[in-house]
Amino acid sequence: MSEVITESAVEPQRLVRGRLVLLAGGTSAAGRACARALVAAGGRVVIVGSDAGRLRDAADSAPGTAIEECDLTEPAAVSALRDRVHSAHGNVDGVVHLVGGWRGGGGLAGQSDEDFAALLRSFTALRNVSRSFDDDLRASDAGRLAIVSSTAVARPLAGGANYAAVKAASEAWTRAVAQGYAKSARDAGRDLSAAGVIFRVRSLDGLEEALASAVVALWDDDAADVNDVVIEIGASA
């Protein structure tokens, strides 16, 4: 299932109020926009990143947020992060995965192992974070896991093969998580409460606020309406 959200199509609501949302890799411009929008809507936010200076800057740009320094590619570090978040804030209701970055160009011959290894860190971080906080999201009455992917998955180019492959893997992982949510709810004979969602963008430049609004709106819909859904940000309807 897929839907399109343009830059002005989503009005932030307040149904995220009181929810604890973890922004993994949230020190980017998009992460800061998401943090500000979530706090403005009444959410509680923990920004996670690996650079202490960027974390402090992110917190300054989004007053009311908490910050945690963590290497999300290290399973033990993510487990320790989960314990710290639980101790300080309680269980998590949402994880928004913003770890990413672009490396590419040069056609297929330019797809170096070094670039692939760097890009793969995003997928590794997603696997670690989604597994560590899986129990939280399943236990929440409105758990949400969301990733930011790329339109390159639908139309990969030779010069971006590494990038598209990693994004495709991240989408497959998120869809598998979504299937797990649905199966657990079905097997237990209860309504679905958790959802795995994929946001796709061509580029986040200039669309940070649109993404932030879409993140806030994840809690405005029933889980069944957004689970295993691809939402395109900034595409023409």
Rank of each mutant, 00 (worst) to 15 (best):
S150L: 11
L98F: 08
V129Q: 06
A164Y: 04
D134E: 13
H89R: 08
R121T: 06
A142L: 03
D134F: 12
A169Q: 05
A142Q: 09
R127F: 02
A154G: 10
W102K: 07
T124S: 13
G106P: 06
G160S: 15
R103I: 13
A169M: 12
A152R: 03
L157H: 08
S149N: 09
E114H: 12
N91Q: 06
D115P: 01
A117T: 14
G100W: 03
R103W: 06
A142S: 13
A158W: 00
A125E: 03
R121G: 15
S140F: 07
G100C: 08
G107I: 01
R121I: 00
S150I: 06
V153G: 10
R155P: 08
K167V: 04
S170E: 07
D115M: 07
L108A: 13
L145R: 02
A146L: 14
K167W: 03
H97G: 03
T124C: 07
S170F: 01
A158R: 00
V96W: 02
V153S: 10
W102R: 07
N128Q: 12
Y163I: 02
R138W: 06
G90Q: 03
N91A: 08
L157D: 09
D113Q: 15
A164G: 08
A139G: 12
F123D: 11
V99H: 11
G107Q: 01
F116K: 12
R127T: 10
D115H: 10
A117W: 01
F123V: 06
D113Y: 15
A118R: 14
G100K: 08
Q111F: 00
G100N: 10
F116N: 12
D93A: 02
D113A: 15
S150H: 11
F123L: 13
L120T: 08
